[in-house]
Nucleic acid binder design. Structure first.
Length: 610
DNA sequence: CCCCCCCC
């Protein structure tokens, strides 16, 4: 029986700079292996060894074909027809990247005894028992004479449409999901779903400007950034909502910490990058996954989500100074409502705050806004967030109808601090505790809270294991205006160097050092006067008096150990003996809210079972 | 090559 395989294909790929045109080879899979490199959106990636019966060659499959591996349709000894592929040299090795394939009926036996072309080549080429490795590209080889247009992914006959205006060969049409740094010849056809402002920056390397866009097609999204010349070349052309061909750009590993676009990679526009408009509107529009305003309590702080609502009120423009950078930012709050009868505040920043105009109570769809916990729940525009005013989507029409008919006169329920972490109404606010994320001590440590330049806030319920008795307070300035500075004991009174005044007696204030623990671990925290007084149930001054009169103050510390409390903590980077460490300060303390905390836990559990 | 996303 003659081999069904396209003998000679491996050799052709091996000796050609580019993918052979017009061939759809039939090859046998010798092995399938998961590799240690993420796919575009973090999926697994698989490497195949493909045989043409004479030789074998390495291949990768585009992640959208992963299901074929999962379902075992693509497995050892299976025969496949490559209907979409490109070839590439990675670190001097030839690689076939499979974008589309069909499986061919076969009895499952291995065909022939294929050999490794690479070894033969590196051994001097003479070891090859097959035809000399001289096959010129784009000529008929081996047993196949296919003359089909090379198609890639879903591009079909449009593959060459990527060849913009007949310029250079820009590569086949790729699905966004198929892009990777291993492949540099590609064209995507994608819609711009988001475009940033032009940002100017200056650092040690000089000055520059940049912008970024998010592209989307039916397989995924990817962020693209252009610097300097690319700003001049493409900023105006790339309109939000329109579809473009993009090719000859670089693919980098995305720094996921800086944006929420779901892709392991990002595009960097370069000098030779080609972008041209495309009038094919079949590329999908932005997809929303709206969260009802009443359901924001289910989200975690800092989560990104999509929200649609009627702009019921527009606040005045204001300016705030960033604590981090000391730079001023324009800010504007708006109030959003939806048919759940809930309202939420959303903050716009910078240019968006300045230019925002909506005096007619429009419906606005927001994509990728950040959830905050100020005032229970609040929303904040993120740089990669988008807003669409009165979008033509069913949800918007529905909201419009509802608002005009009844919503206009509805009394809306606002988020409040009492709704701690979504535990609706549970009395967490008893002590006026501002809700911040409830964490175990282990989580606070594992997540490195307080290790960055900026302080971190969290809440933890823990039990006091030990309170330091030796140094629980300091003598403070007695100024009734509230100075609180430490005073120096001179022989004729206590001097406050700040107020430049002397007092007959200081007022003692707490600096209480405590070891607190929960089921995950323990840490040392510091509570200052007000919180410490709440914990100790006696003022530092009184406790000092007892100490000075020789009374047993130990009982006061004894009855404090073993108390379980909810601490609102500040974790901040500090150095001690030149060693960096985290200093944990208790900002507020309250009785544990068992009802609210268990509601929070049960919510976490239900999230796990999704 | 940016990468800040702030405030109360």
């Amino acid at each position: 029986m003659s081999s069904p395989l396209s003998a000679g294909f491996c050799e052709l790929v091996f000796n050609s700079a580019e993918a052979p045109e017009g061939v759809t080879p039939i090859l046998q899979v010798l092995s399938v292996k998961k590799i240690n490199a993420p796919g575009a959106a973090g999926q697994d990636r698989y490497r195949l060894i493909l045989s043409d019966g004479k030789h074998f060659i390495q291949a990768m499959i585009a992640t959208q074909l992963n299901h074929l591996v999962d379902s075992k349709e693509l497995d050892k000894n299976v025969i496949i027809k490559l209907t979409g592929y490109v070839t590439n040299a990675v670190q001097g090795r030839k690689l076939v990247i499979i974008l589309n394939l069909e499986t061919v009926q076969w009895n499952g036996e291995k065909i022939g005894n294929p050999t490794n072309l690479e070894q033969q080549q590196s051994a001097g080429g003479g070891a090859s028992t097959s035809a000399p490795a001289q096959a010129a590209p784009k000529q008929e080889v081996g047993g196949f004479q296919a003359r089909q247009q090379l198609t890639a992914g879903r591009g079909g006959p449009q593959a060459k449409a990527g060849g913009v205006k007949g310029k250079q060969d820009v590569g086949p049409l790729y699905p966004i999901e198929g892009l990777s740094p291993y492949q540099n010849k590609w064209t995507i056809k994608a819609r711009v779903t988001q475009k940033s402002d032009i940002k100017h920056y200056s650092n040690q390397r000089g000055e520059g400007k940049l912008f970024s866009v998010t592209f989307m097609d039916e397989t995924g999204e990817i962020r693209a950034t252009g610097f300097n010349e690319a700003v001049d070349n493409f900023y105006n052309m790339l309109e939000e909502g329109k579809v473009f061909f993009v090719s000859r750009a670089r693919i980098n590993i995305a720094k996921k910490q800086f944006n929420n676009v779901n892709n392991e990679y990002e595009i960097m526009f370069e000098n030779q990058t080609e972008i041209s408009p495309c009038d094919d509107d079949s590329v999908p529009q932005v997809k929303y996954n709206f969260k009802g305003i009443d359901a924001l309590g289910e989200t975690q702080k800092d989560e990104l989500c999509d929200v649609i609502g009627v702009v019921r009120e527009v606040g005045e423009i204001g300016s705030v100074t960033s604590k981090a950078t000391n730079k001023p930012f324009a800010k504007r709050d708006i109030q959003l409502v939806d048919s759940s009868g809930h309202s939420v505040r959303l903050t716009l920043w910078g240019k968006q705050a300045e230019t925002f105009q909506a005096d007619d109570q429009p419906v606005i769809a927001f994509k990728g806004v950040k959830v905050g916990d100020f005032g229970g729940r609040s929303l904040s525009m993120f740089s990669s967030a988008t807003m669409s005013v009165n979008p033509d989507i069913p949800e918007a029409h529905q909201l419009r109808g509802w608002f005009d008919a009844e919503g206009r006169n509805t009394q809306f329920q606002q988020y409040t601090n009492a709704m701690n972490n979504g535990a609706a109404g549970a009395g967490a606010a008893a002590g006026g505790v501002r809700p911040s994320e409830l964490k175990t001590i282990g989580e606070a440590k594992d997540e490195g809270l307080g290790m960055s330049d900026k302080p971190d806030f969290f809440t933890t319920s823990a039990t006091i294991a030990f309170v330091k008795q030796e140094t629980f307070s300091y003598p403070a300035c007695a100024n009734p205006e509230g100075c609180n500075k430490k005073v120096v004991d001179t022989n004729d009174g206590y001097l406050c160097e700040k107020c430049d005044r002397k007092w007959d007696a200081p007022i003692h204030r707490y600096i209480l050092s405590m070891n607190v623990m929960d089921h995950t671990g323990s840490f040392w925290i510091t509570a200052f006067n007000d919180q410490a007084e709440q914990i100790m149930e006696i003022s530092a001054n009184e406790l000092n008096k007892l100490k000075e009169t020789g009374e047993d103050i130990n009982t006061h510390f004894q009855k404090t150990t073993g108390k379980t409390l909810t601490f609102q903590m500040l974790a901040k980077q500090d150095s001690f003996n030149d060693q960096p460490r985290v200093r944990y300060t208790c900002r507020k303390v309250s009785a544990p809210d068992y009802v609210g905390d268990s509601a929070h836990l049960s919510q976490l559990i239900s999230q796990m079972s999704v």
